[in-house]
């Protein structure tokens, strides 16, 4: 069975949190367990963040995401977390995320 998917260009979801010291944007895959773990980790730590599910974005959105990640020297693997528009962390690397977010 094939279910139709609703394609968005690039839908940015915002998750509120008490700690908004850093700007956190995460590119994720909606079905990825590592991405889910990262989302939960940020939420549990009260971090305010935004995320985009790349697999639910359309071709233009995907191209944009691809360029944004590569531009910052990252690789196309998820989660790809961009902190303060410049630091990119690929994968749920807890220590690195903690250090960058000062938590």
């Amino acid at each position: 069975m094939r279910r139709s998917v609703r394609w968005e260009r690039m839908k940015i979801a915002k998750v509120p949190g008490k700690n908004n010291k850093h700007k956190v944007l995460m590119y994720a895959i909606s079905t990825c367990a590592w991405c889910k773990l990262t989302k939960k980790f940020l939420k549990d730590n009260n971090i305010e963040y935004e995320y985009v599910d790349v697999d639910l974005s359309n071709i233009e959105g995907r191209e944009k995401i691809r360029r944004e990640i590569l531009k910052r020297g990252g690789s196309l693997s998820y989660p790809a977390i961009i902190i303060d528009d410049k630091i990119l962390i690929n994968g749920f690397r807890k220590d690195e995320i903690k250090e960058t977010l000062e938590i």
């Binding site: 094939r2 895959i29 079905t31 990825c32 697999d55």
Partner: peptide, 21 residues
């Protein structure tokens, strides 16, 4: 992960890797 595989099989017709695009 299993939920992701199921979802991918539903939307694509085959169980594509849940953590990749």
């Amino acid at each position: 992960l299993l939920e992701g595989l199921k979802r991918n099989e539903e939307r694509y017709g085959y169980p594509s890797c849940p953590c990749r695009l």
